[in-house]
Design a protein around this nucleic acid. Structure first.
Length: 291
DNA sequence: AAGCGTTACAACCGCAAAAGG
DNA sequence: ACCTTTTGCGGTTGTAACGCT
């Protein structure tokens, strides 16, 4: 539908590289009307572009705070580890990298990291081709050089989370501490963890303040430990399917949580629900641990 | 200097999910 | 409940810039 209307290049819409004038028009439009309602953007901005093109240009290039330039070692490490856990969930990975877009991360991975890995990630359709078919250039290159080393294809146990809706019957949110740094005893009534557990976790987090990849560390250790598949006792008085979930969320995401695994200070003011709204991690684990 | 190969990244495409009527 | 529209994502391609021979 959309592909027919917008992707065929019909209607005389402009394609290709954006000019400075187009950038200026788009920026002015977004500043005036805000993000969203992309179908109206080309009209409002007076651009002869499809809404997809406008959105992409804004999100990947014009949007303020977009970080350009080389990826730092920390960022590379985080990308590598998150990719190992999440696969080609670029938007999810980019969400943990302030200022980086999914396209940036994807491009980086495709041009740098994939060369280093021997376990290519299967694409959506299940094919294992490192997520990329030979481009025209590559095809041309291959015609002239049949000795290009091929990646060794090995089968890996890839976790492929998928979007899903939360059910209140199977999950209850732990409550957000009113004071982010110092847990209050009344704030955890829905959490299966004891207050001491929470204090311990806070202490632990403070001890690791500045450890940018703590979030990933915890996620990885969870997967290694198999916490999510532990048998549940009745001592907690909770639904059997609530305990491992709340347990894992507490163990993976700290109570003051992180919007970014790198910038640990930025999210303390943030809304708890929005931080935990990124439920793909839970989906990832629930898929893998039969929670 | 020219030609060719490689790299990096902007941009496009198709699809599926979400939102709205 | 169903259909249409909108949005967002991941895969892929095009091409400018660079490096090497």
């Amino acid at each position: 539908m959309e592909g027919v209307l917008e992707s065929a290049g019909g209607g005389g819409l402009r394609k290709g590289a954006w000019t400075e004038d187009e950038d200026r028009l788009l920026r002015r439009c977004i500043e005036a009307y805000g993000e969203g309602r992309w179908h109206q953007v080309p009209i409002r901005a007076g651009l002869n572009r499809c809404r997809k093109s406008c959105r992409l240009r804004w999100l990947n290039y014009l949007k303020p705070n977009i970080k350009r330039g080389e990826f730092s070692d920390d960022e590379v490490d985080l990308i590598t580890r998150l990719h190992k856990l999440l696969g080609n969930r670029w938007s999810l990975i980019a969400g943990r990298l302030p200022g980086r877009t999914a396209n940036d991360v994807k491009n980086y991975w495709n041009t740098h990291q994939k060369k280093k890995t021997t376990t290519p990630f299967p694409c959506k359709t299940g094919c294992i081709n490192n997520g990329r078919q030979p481009s025209a250039v590559a095809k041309k290159n291959n015609n002239n050089n049949n000795n290009i080393p091929r990646l060794q294809i090995t089968k890996t146990n890839i976790i492929k989370p998928r979007p899903r809706t939360f059910s209140p019957k199977t999950f209850c949110w732990p409550k957000k501490p009113t004071e982010p740094k110092k847990p209050n005893s009344n704030n955890y009534e829905l959490s299966p963890l004891s207050r001491d557990d929470h204090h311990h976790r806070y202490d632990d987090q403070e001890n690791h303040a500045g450890a940018g990849n703590m979030w990933v560390d915890q996620l990885e250790s969870f997967l290694d430990d198999g916490i999510g598949s532990r048998p549940v006792t009745e001592s907690g008085g909770l639904e059997t399917d609530q305990i491992p979930l709340a347990q894992l969320m507490s163990s993976i995401l700290p109570d003051h949580s992180e919007k970014s695994a790198i910038d640990l200070t930025a999210f303390q003011e943030d809304n708890y629900q929005s931080l935990w709204g990124d439920v793909d991690i839970w989906h990832l684990l629930s898929d893998h641990h039969d929670i």
